[in-house]
Amino acid sequence: MALISPSEKDFITKGIEADMRNDGRSRIAYRDFTIETGIVSQASGSCRLRLSKTDVLIGVKVEIGDIISNTTSDNNNEQEQDIVNNQNESDKGRIVCSVECSPSASRDFEGKGANDINNELSQIMNRVLNGPQGGIDLKSLCIIPGAQCWIIYVDVLVLDYDGNLLDTIFLATRAALQNTRIPKTEIQDIGNGQLEFDISDDIEDAEKIKGWEDVPVTVSLNKIGQKYIVDATAMEELCTDTKIIIAVNRNGEICAMQKSLYGSLNPSLLTEMIRTAKDIGKVLIKNLDTTLEHEQVMASRANNKKFGFFI
């Protein structure tokens, strides 16, 4: 269990009231992040993002699955069933997210300790990405309406932790989805109204996921004392009494909002936080997109020399 002494907590709280954080940032400043995409060769898309020391690796795999409509009752895959319960249509694909916090990130994640936080983070991701607010065009993932569709599996592996896990995960997810390629399918009518499809093996033919530009990122705002900060470090998170997570897309629309931890807020502070989050979110997305473009340019020049994970 991570602990913090009362004097340290007091020091951090008073510093934030005076707009001075331990590492010299202002209350609404983000740390720098480094990003690399396309590093897991067996995945359809991948990304590794390091926000200072918080380290997240995302692998995206696309697989073909059945469209589960509301009329089938199959208790085996409860995670997918939850997603489907919120969807009625039989011509949409789906996104299934799962987060795994590796014990290398923190002692609390050993054995079954990570179950709660894994479940919470996976649920938030599933809620944000499945639906029009998630940006991705789920209808374009459908192959044969009512029967087969593409399922996008987003698997998150948390390798190291220094605060602000959810923001890192969403930034990396957005980059990984930009990097993902779905193979092209050709549908053939073999008579009797039955449809069959063929998957093209050509890598060049694979398409980008439609709507990846509208995938939102989250901004986590931590209330410490009477002020709030953005992008908290692990120590600052231990001083937080209320945390608000706001998902913002590139148009400045709010896609999700959730409060966590044990405190309460003034409605006026909440309103102010929403407005700040909107501005910060848009800037974050712009920075991320610029970095991704830069990476594409560098990759084409360096003849795909990958830096690999850590070397």
Binding site: V40, Q42, S46, L57, S98, E100, P103, Y153, L157
Partner: peptide, 30 residues
């Protein structure tokens, strides 16, 4: 030690945890 019963009075105990990422194989298996 995380559990009292994993303690040895004369030496350290070693605890190993092994896991495979879901995207590590060509077919995704959780």
């Amino acid at each position: 030690p995380s559990h009292k019963n994993l303690q040895y009075h004369d030496r350290a105990s070693i605890n190993v945890e092994y896991s495979i990422a879901t995207f590590s194989t060509s077919e995704r298996k959780q």
